[in-house]
Nucleic acid binder design. Structure first.
Lengths: 244, 244
DNA sequence: CGTGCCCTTGACACGATTCAAGGCTAGTGG
DNA sequence: CCACTAGCCTTGAATCGTGTCAAGGGCACG
């Protein structure tokens, strides 16, 4: 049904593993059951037991945890080509909630189909595990960002990481990308107040490093931003998976 | 050789899965190759490709990432019964470094043995994957701690989490536990200066909540501490794994 | 008896939050 | 077509939490 279009996930995987025609066919099959979700309506609540995962095809999602005092900490953003709830299918109930940031389109992947794909196409399985492992590395990097960098470095690093991820699925480049996030999303993700996010963005813009406006991130001085952020891509690049 | 003693890992797994004699035998076999490492000497460096994982039998380890500016962020502590480098065996090179905090004793688990155990004892495999997934949930919780809690809540939450983990392997209780960490370990883990860690510890002690002294953590008012920290154990308790 | 490591405390500086007010823009109903 | 509203962004001023700097104390070890 969507046979001719190349999905973002396929694009991402292809950057790291040579996929056979068989792999591609299975991947296409996993993309069959399309569903859409409206912006702002929670998809999965913390603690729910899911039977399906999703592959995000279009739009952005965030995963977060709510605190007793009402603040929320955004753990990660999902962009096209990312899995949603992969872990909860493989292992346990979800330990955080998901919410679409804009209207999204996602392919539902029932547990059964996923497990089948795993047994039938080992190379694809490896690639998917590699993706999961990369996601985990990004969470760790986010942790480091929160624990030991000041506001502008956090921001710089975060915007660069997003850029790198989007570039991999053809939605970004070293000059910038479209970004539907609000300043309060940045605040909740980076552990800052939205007022301060605003100030930091102004500073970065006035320093000629990066601008965040009208849904567009524009890198004005990529190298300078990388230097400020201490942005090393080792945790993202990974030359490819080895096994399981 | 160590046939009679119950390893911490076994204790931990047994709390969640009913292990058969076969499972126990395999587990015991994984514990055979004992090695020791001296405190402070880095075991694995970020980026290294490991061929073995370890099961920590005695002592504490921390995993961390170093920043360009020399500060380090501790990502997690490993206590007896925890795996070290499990991910790097299954999937990819390690993305952070490990360092023993005290002299430790660990069982080396070669990749081959681990994979064998996975195929031969599916129930054990599930249990181990469950452990890995729990570790990941703890990293997420740590991220939340750093992003959206002030210093005393971070500290309170952290000390409680450690207590819960240690209790599971018989090394702690609701009244306290032995803890070889220095104040600078807490600082590096919680994203605080060690000076401030010191102040926070004093405050908590004077508030009659918890004391951290001479290698002993003593809970003076467990319920009060839980309340201050907003400590909910859902992410740790997990009534048990379902599958793979 | 010294030396080094860690803990402790105080004074001060700085980064981030909070509070408050106002502006812009898109959407809504008169 | 024009109020009017609701979100979101922007800015300033005051406050608070945490970091930095500096000095001293305790304890273990050589």
């Amino acid at each position: 049904m969507h046979a001719t279009e190349i999905s973002p996930l396929t694009k991402k995987l292809a950057a790291f593993v040579a996929l056979s025609d068989g792999d591609l066919a299975v991947l296409a099959r996993l993309h069959q059951k399309r569903r859409s979700f409206g912006a702002g309506r929670e998809m999965v609540h913390e603690g729910e037991t899911e039977q399906s995962a999703y592959i995000l095809a279009k739009g952005w999602v965030c995963s977060y945890k709510l605190q007793p005092d009402g603040t929320r900490q955004i753990i990660d953003f999902q962009i096209p080509g990312d899995f949603l709830g992969l872990r909860s299918v493989l292992l346990r109930t979800s330990d955080h909630s998901f919410e679409p940031i804009v209207d999204i389109l996602a392919a539902e992947v029932p547990k059964k189909d996923l497990l089948e794909a795993f047994t039938n196409t080992p190379r694809l399985a490896t690639a998917i595990l590699w993706v999961a492992s990369r996601d985990e590395a990004m969470v760790v990097e986010h942790l480091v960002r929160l624990g030991s960098r000041d506001a502008s470095k956090r921001m710089a690093h975060f915007l660069l990481e997003l850029g790198a991820r989007l570039t991999l699925v053809g939605l970004g480049s070293k000059s910038g990308y479209a970004c539907p996030l609000r300043q309060y999303h940045l605040a909740d993700a980076l552990g800052l107040s939205s007022v301060h996010v605003n100030r930091v963005l102004r500073d970065l813009r006035e320093a000629g490093l990066v601008s965040f406006r009208d849904g567009q991130v524009k890198f004005l001085d990529y190298a300078g931003l990388v230097k400020l952020a201490g942005f090393y891509t080792a945790y993202l690049d990974e030359t490819g998976p080895l096994l399981l």
